Simulated scan of single mutants.
Amino acid sequence: MFNRTVSALALAAAMIAAPAFAQDTTADPDTVVATVDGTEITLGQMAAMKLSMPPDMAQVPANEMWDLLLDEMVRQAALANTGEEELTALDRAFLANQRRDYLVRAVMERVADFEPTDEEVQAAYAAAFPSDEPIQEYDADHILLETEEAANAVIEELNNGGDFAALAEERSVDTGSAQSGGDLGWFTADRMVPEFSEAVVAMEPGTTSEAPVQSQFGFHVIKLNETRDMTAPEMADVRETLVQQIRRQKVAEEIERIAGEATVERTEGIDPAVLDQNILEIPN
């Protein structure tokens, strides 16, 4: 597929001979710098292209980059004009999705572009580390199975002297923890799905779950190694984490607000199976 960014190799080769010159320009991003078969290339589009370049190349002085960048955009415009004449269903769908994705990210970045107040950070800290009750952490291992029968079989093997770590490496479908014998490390209950957390909280250190614990991921066999009270960190040490958390929450709330206020009309009666058909007519 055609690479729509400036070629690093082309830039590196052409900049050697790029002439240095002074040129008066306006700061208006809508200023037209070239027209290709009726398609306008603007100063703003050039500036956006410059932003997409690798940092070391983006630092090249503008007077050394101008002709090179504009020539590249002229070539792209000529090719894009040809592409516009031959748009397929796949092209139209991808272009619409890419435009939507860019606009979504732009909105999210604008929403997240704020500095939380000290009061907001203090409230987030208090919620994460309540002073009136200790926070307990758990050190546990697990073996994740796809079926209850498979989980019961593992429990039976453990009861007969089987090695938990070896069985985790051999049977667990959680490939991430399986490589370390099912080790999940230290965690607080709120970091796990409710079914898993409830089972762990009810266990005694040094024991293994007597029955499979079902969650949305499958069936867990859990071994609780240790518990400990977590010492709350100084707020200054976690301030940046709390700030990011507040921003994520703000973005999530804004997404729900905007989506909730949107007028949505769903077309009924479409068979979902059509998604398995080659509706975009992609050549085999």
Rank of each mutant, 00 (worst) to 15 (best):
Q179R: 15
I155L: 15
E265S: 09
G182P: 09
T207P: 06
A93K: 11
T188Y: 03
L68M: 14
D30H: 12
S209Q: 01
A34K: 06
A124K: 03
S215M: 11
E253K: 04
P212A: 13
F217T: 06
E234P: 06
V173E: 12
Q179P: 02
T88N: 09
A153V: 02
S180Y: 10
D271G: 04
F196W: 03
P212Q: 12
E240T: 14
T207I: 06
L70M: 09
L280P: 00
G206Q: 00
D237M: 13
D113M: 05
M192R: 14
F217S: 15
E64V: 05
G38D: 04
A106P: 00
D24Q: 13
E204V: 12
A22N: 11
N225D: 14
V213L: 04
E210K: 14
R99E: 10
T207S: 15
T31S: 13
D132N: 12
S7A: 09
G218E: 04
D229K: 10
R99P: 00
T39G: 03
R99D: 07
L95S: 11
Q216P: 00
R257P: 02
P134E: 07
L184G: 09
R239I: 07
P283I: 08
F2Q: 10
Q245W: 06
A27P: 00
N278C: 09
A112H: 13
D28T: 10
L275R: 14
V274F: 15
E109K: 14
P233S: 10
V6R: 00
D229L: 12
M53H: 01
Q214P: 09
E64W: 03
L224V: 10
E170K: 03
A47I: 06
P116H: 11
I258E: 04
Q245V: 08
F2E: 11
T117K: 05
N81P: 03
A89P: 02
A34R: 08
A13R: 11
E119Q: 14
D183I: 00
D101R: 15
A112P: 12
E204P: 01
Y125S: 01
L95P: 04
S215P: 03
N97Y: 08
S180K: 11
R247T: 08
